[in-house]
């Protein structure tokens, strides 16, 4: 039964990935005042790209496709570990916060190799800016996750998601969520897939979207840890959990889309959003330990 649940969990996340990408694009277009594309359009466009006539750009590096493939593989592995509607997964004991963070970091940074594979100044500047943002954002990110782990009382996601830090104070939860939202506002938009065409481009787009979906799903499991069925297999509970997960993801996506700026991020790394995220994360970390001080 755990195997079936794991397969269904992974299938749900993979199937939702193009829709999630479409939803993000629709919200971004709506906020910019442009006509919003259908959230279902990535299903069609990715399929068309997958079936397009294969072409190879002269001097294109296979590193781009390789990096996208590794990024997607890391994201798929993370998706198989993050519970969406049930915690009765084969990999539930392996769903440890450090491992999930590492997988998502690898999925996000591996495609940057394709930026450097082009060898141009623009690719280098873009890759450098994204990596530098990760450096300055890391204290806020890790502090928020640390606070949520402390409140959940474990580093195993299935334990945090089921217990939900019962009896833990609400304020640090809210501050940690605010920190993550502020980080989402300050973060650069998804990296463009440079030098890839056809199937390799689909891999790059899917990797980017699935990584963000996994991050949103992780955020939902940590901050709103309700609606996940436990070890007892029950199709009705699974269905209800899947619907609740879809609602949570749609809500999180909408909030992330609304807090993001309409203009692309500038060259400055230390922004007000990042400062807010860092302060909120520090406050969440301190308050999560307040009873013990």
């Amino acid at each position: 039964m755990r195997l079936i649940a794991t397969a269904l969990n992974l299938a749900l996340l993979l199937a939702a990935t193009p829709g999630f990408a479409g939803l993000l694009a629709s919200i971004a277009a709506w906020r910019a005042g442009r006509p919003a594309p259908s959230p279902l359009s990535p299903y069609r466009s990715w399929q068309a790209l997958w079936r397009a006539e294969p072409v190879v750009v002269a001097e294109a590096s296979p590193i781009a496709a390789g990096a996208a493939a590794f990024s997607l593989a890391s994201a798929i592995l993370a998706a198989a570990l993050i519970p969406s509607f049930t915690t009765a997964l084969v990999g539930a004991p392996l769903a440890l916060l450090p491992l999930l963070i590492v997988l998502l970091v690898l999925a996000e940074t591996a495609p940057l190799l394709s930026h450097l594979a082009t060898g141009t100044m623009a690719g280098g500047i873009d890759a450098g800016r994204r990596l530098a943002f990760f450096v300055v954002a890391s204290p806020a990110l890790f502090l928020a996750l640390w606070a949520l782990a402390q409140l959940g009382g474990s580093i195993t996601l299935s334990v945090i998601a089921v217990q939900g830090g019962a009896g833990s104070p609400l304020l640090p939860h809210l501050l940690a969520m605010a920190a993550l939202l502020a980080l989402a506002r300050a973060a650069p938009s998804a990296a463009p897939s440079l030098g890839s065409h056809g199937r390799a481009r689909v891999l790059a787009l899917a990797a980017s979207a699935l990584t963000r979906l996994c991050a949103a799903s992780l955020f939902a499991a940590l901050s709103v840890p309700y609606g996940l069925s436990g070890d007892a297999p029950s199709p009705a509970a699974w269905g209800f959990g899947a619907l609740l997960w879809a609602g949570k993801i749609a809500f999180v996506t909408l909030v992330f889309g609304l807090v993001r700026g309409t203009r692309p991020a500038g060259a400055r790394l230390l922004t007000a959003s990042l400062a807010t995220a860092t302060l909120c994360a520090f406050a969440a970390a301190l308050l999560s330990e307040a009873p013990r001080i």
Binding site: E53, P54, V55, V56, V57, A58, P62, A65, G66, A68, A69, F70, L72, A73, S74, G198, R199, A200, V202, L203
Partner: peptide
Amino acid sequence: GVGLFLVASRHGARPV
């Protein structure tokens, strides 16, 4: 990752 890479890189692609 290796499996996905092999699926994505098809032989006989037209160079442009």
